[in-house]
Simulated assay, not measured.
Amino acid sequence: MTRTQTAGAALDSTTIIERGRRVLALEAEALQRSEQALGEPFAEAVRLLTSCSGRIIVAGVGKSGLVGRKIAATFTSTGTPATFLHPVESVHGDLGIVGPDDVAILISKSGESDELLGLIEALARLGVKRIAMTAVPGSRLGRLCDVTLDLLVKEEACPHDLAPTTSTTVTLALGDALAVALLQAKGFRAEDFARLHPGGALGRRLLTRVADVMVREPLPTLPLGATMREAVVLLAARRGIAIVVEQDRVSGVVTAGDLTRMLERQDDVLTVSVASVMTTAPRMAEDTELGSAVVHRMETHGIMAMPVVDGAQRLVGVVHLHDLMRAGAV
């Protein structure tokens, strides 16, 4: 069999799929082991990061460095200033960004990276607290840090156990776990996330509030003594909703759906009082709410339009699902 024939035989679909599944299975098993073994060192690391009054310094070499850049970016985007520091560049001037109030996260599978160990000495002289992420807790890196997080990786998914695969997956997941635990400990909210992500669709979804989209006037309002004849006019002119109001407070809502159901039951609907038809406890939105939260509520309950009230529960507008969606609040 020629080399081409051998390669072709090795590239049949069944073989390729089996190889892919093996990698995913090995990495999933490693993540499961890490989840089950997570303990007090993780809690210590989160407490150390929570007490940090400076910034988080993340460092690593090679693939560990690439993962470290992502971890630093995740911390920064969730409210904790962080930066990636290359161990080699750090001893040639970049160490100037580090201060004694910082906390460092140092990543190395073996825990014996000479470049990283050189950085540790400099960090120790500056009084910087250090968290190690390594698969060898007894390594020099593990011994020289204040807290050591064991990656628990004994085998890479690479068939030669050489290319960083399983270890980088676990490292990345552990970095995410630290960032999420930290943002929860600091009370980081969706509104805070929006403030740091103002651009693009994500920013629009998180920054758009009901007050930005709602219709303020003319409002589709009716007095409590109105008839369905008056309601029908409003339903046609004001996009399918009529709001029954008493002293600036919402008493009820009549929708196009209510009118349709009435017509199915009786012929003469125009003289009927709106008070006998309206929903007396309608779902409402507050003007300060995030549009995305209201969209979720409207879609869950099949509502196309909602009255909007202020903090004193006074009617200030009406918001339509289509307007929220056009504004990107989804």
Rank of each mutant, 00 (worst) to 15 (best):
V244Q: 02
A72M: 04
L119E: 07
L144W: 09
T260Q: 15
D114Q: 00
R33W: 04
S113I: 02
T83V: 11
G96H: 07
L259K: 12
Q313C: 11
L290R: 15
L315D: 04
D94R: 04
S34G: 13
L234G: 04
V210H: 00
A163R: 11
T227P: 09
P307L: 10
A185K: 10
P282A: 09
S90L: 02
V46Q: 01
D267S: 15
K186N: 10
V46A: 12
V103A: 12
V295S: 12
V180Q: 08
G142E: 05
S110P: 06
R314A: 11
A157D: 10
V319L: 09
S292N: 12
D258A: 10
G252H: 06
I56K: 04
D161T: 00
E217V: 00
R261M: 01
S108K: 09
G111P: 00
I120P: 06
R216W: 00
V46S: 13
K109E: 12
G60K: 00
T300Q: 15
L259E: 10
G291W: 10
A104I: 01
V103C: 08
R249V: 14
G199N: 05
R204F: 02
R265V: 10
P307Q: 07
A285G: 09
G68M: 09
A28P: 00
M325C: 01
A275L: 10
V274Y: 01
L259P: 14
D258T: 09
A173H: 06
A72F: 05
A7P: 01
G54K: 03
A285F: 09
R265Y: 03
L196D: 10
P41W: 00
A104D: 09
M228N: 02
L31E: 08
G20E: 11
T6N: 13
D310F: 11
G187K: 11
S110W: 05
V88R: 07
T279H: 06
Q266W: 11
D161F: 01
A327P: 07
V23H: 05
V213C: 02
V210L: 01
A242L: 13
G240Y: 11
V272T: 12
A25K: 07
T280A: 14
G62C: 14
L11S: 06
P220W: 01
S13K: 13
A43W: 01
K70G: 10
V330F: 06
I56N: 05
R229V: 07
S292M: 14
A305M: 12
V88A: 14
E286M: 15
A231I: 05
L123A: 07
V318E: 14
S51V: 07
A45N: 01
G187Y: 04
L149T: 01
S13N: 13
Q313W: 08
H322G: 00
M1S: 11
E44A: 13
E44D: 12
R249Y: 13
T74I: 10
V232T: 07
R195V: 10
R229E: 15
A177L: 05
Q32I: 11
V128C: 13
L126Y: 08
L263N: 06
T279F: 03
H160F: 14
L315P: 06
I243K: 02
Q32C: 02
V319D: 03
T80W: 03
L321G: 01
V274T: 08
L126Q: 12
A9N: 11
S53I: 00
D101F: 02
L126N: 09
T280P: 06
L117E: 07
G96S: 04
I97F: 04
A190G: 09
P100V: 10
P159Y: 07
A104G: 08
L206G: 15
V254H: 05
